[in-house]
Design a protein around this nucleic acid. Structure first.
Length: 490
RNA sequence: GGUCCUGUGGCCGAGUGGCUAGGCUGAGCUCUGCAAAAGCUCCUACUGCGGUUCGAAUCCGCACGGGACCUCCA
């Protein structure tokens, strides 16, 4: 372990030293997507942020169990535990079975996560796969006196719970303040308290996704799945629970209440929340209609996009902002990241060509320290990136014979750049080894050989034309001291 | 209305009570047949007004601007 990691805990609103419950092991639960439509870039940001966190914990040597669920049932359209769930609604629209909707968008989600080079979680449980666990948990909550049933629907009694536990602690709010923000109960409402939420919802005649329960046919409420599944795979109390900030006030607040009411203990030691992605200063969301899909981003096929951006350029763009800050999208910012990313990757490829000397002009050990210090300070990737650019500067300077490096330092620098850029930040070099690429490589060798002859005859007009023409096909030739180098641009 | 967060150079974005992050852009220089790349140098900011302090962009207050949550959303 490279010194002490600290994490900003939403519960206390301070940075705390990270001490896992079980030495050397970390349990992480992150609220995954509700798979009733394509994930947009804002959703991706959250999962990419937690991918960084997961990767760094692994890098530090922790044995991590990373659980990220798939919500495939119980997430209602309306705000008052009424109506059909999102899958059934979408299923009707697309004339499919609800589980066809789930399958379609789950596969799509996985494809996008792979594009962004995120590591798969250790366990990816689904709500429909854990109906029994949810029912058992609800039974326990009722037995403990924190929930009640009315006509086949089970509600959590928030006001009763609040008498013993601070219901609004995660958002630092008092119950009275929360009550002020809610509407009066209408005559149709069955629940007792305005803040009460459903644990189990009675099925109607037309409900498509329903299961038998002690309270009749129905389906689980949205919040109970995360309590049940985190409990099952990580235990009654685990280390880190994460999710987007928008889940903090309702979903996570209710999760804490459910788990506490069931197990008589707080479920989570460190709560982590990632901030939103914004477009022109406004949060990207499904309902605001200002979101675009990862596919559109990669191809540039969207009115807001001037061009396409590669998945790694986008990932790097996100790594230049701290996970707790809002990240505002713009073409200009993305293009800046694209260039910076290319420079960083190019420098890493240069490492293998460096010559070593008897002394180093730069302090590589200090650089290593700076990298760990950045990440240990609540996963501060932007500061890490700044240090990595310092590394790139050193590499390029040594390559230009303007600085020197010892063999020992070079080995350390190489290890440092590789482990932080590829393992921790999760970036990868975007080159493929397809047969077409190999053919291009061969062709370029032939072309450069011919151009060498032309240049030897000092026919610069011809050699420059060759270079310019290839450039029109996105192939750059650079005439360095050590001979020509070529590359393909995006 | 309630509860919070936030306001940094041309753009994006870190950050600490005093020691000028970083990326992109622009200008100049070095290198080079030229170009590109790379390195170096320069443009040295912290919404406004008060207060605390030897000293504040960093702490406090007020004002103005932006945003989030309180209703489904990562």
């Amino acid at each position: 372990m490279q010194n002490q990691l600290s994490i900003f805990n939403t519960l206390t609103r301070t940075k705390e030293k990270f001490e896992p419950i079980h030495k050397g092991m970390v349990g992480v639960y992150v609220c995954g997507p509700t798979v009733y439509s394509d994930v947009h870039l804002g959703n991706c940001r959250t999962f990419i942020s937690f991918d960084l966190i997961y990767r760094y914990l692994l890098h530090l040597g922790f044995k991590v169990r990373y659980v990220r669920n798939i919500t495939d049932a119980g997430h209602l359209e309306g705000d008052r535990d009424e109506g059909d769930d999102k899958f059934a609604k979408k299923a009707k629209l697309e004339q499919l079975e609800p589980m066809e909707i789930v399958q379609k968008y789950t596969l799509g989600f996985h494809d996008v996560m792979r594009e962004f080079n995120t590591l798969p979680p250790s366990i990816e449980p689904t709500a429909t796969g854990h109906i029994c666990e949810q029912i058992e948990m609800i039974k326990e909550i009722i037995a403990n006196g924190y929930a009640y049933e009315i006509k086949g629907t089970v509600y959590f009694d928030v006001e009763k719970y609040n008498k013993e536990f601070p219901y609004g602690q995660l958002t630092n709010r008092k119950l009275e303040d929360l009550l002020e923000g809610t509407r009066e109960l209408s005559g149709q409402d069955e629940k007792r308290g305005r803040l009460d939420f459903a644990l189990w919802i009675a099925a109607k005649e037309e409900t498509l996704m329903k299961w038998p329960s002690p309270w009749g046919w129905g389906f689980p409420g949205w919040h109970i799945e995360c309590s049940a599944m985190s409990n099952k795979y990580l235990g009654e109390t685990f280390d880190i629970h994460g999710g987007g900030m928008d889940l903090q006030a309702t979903h996570h607040t209710n999760e804490i209440a459910q788990s506490q009411a069931c197990n008589h203990k707080a479920p989570v030691k460190y709560w982590m929340h990632t901030n939103m992605l914004t477009v022109n200063g406004v949060r990207m969301s499904k309902t605001a209609g200002n979101g675009f899909l990862p596919g559109e981003l990669f191809t540039g096929n969207h009115p807001l996009l001037e061009k396409g951006y590669s998945p790694m350029a986008v990932r790097f763009f996100m790594m230049q902002t701290h996970y707790r800050s809002t990240l505002d999208f713009s073409n200009e910012a993305l293009q800046a990241s694209e260039k910076g990313y290319a420079r960083l990757i190019t420098s890493i490829k240069t490492i293998d060509n460096l010559k070593t000397s008897a002394a180093s002009t730069s302090n590589i050990k200090e650089l290593e320290k700076a990298c760990y210090a950045a990440m240990n300070d609540d996963f501060n990737a932007p500061i890490l990136v700044a240090s990595l650019f310092e590394g790139a500067r050193i590499i390029n300077s040594v390559n230009d014979n303007k600085e020197t490096i010892t063999a020992e330092d070079l080995a350390l620098l190489k290890k440092l750049m590789h482990s932080f850029v590829f393992d921790v930040l999760g970036l990868k070099s975007e080159t493929s080894n397809s047969s077409a690429d190999k053919a291009l490589q061969g062709a370029m060798e032939v072309i450069l050989e011919i151009r060498k002859d032309i240049k030897a005859k000092k026919d610069y007009a011809a050699s420059d034309k060759l270079r310019d023409d290839l450039n029109k096909h996105n192939i750059q030739i650079k005439d360095t001291k050590d001979g020509p180098v070529w590359s393909v641009s995006e």
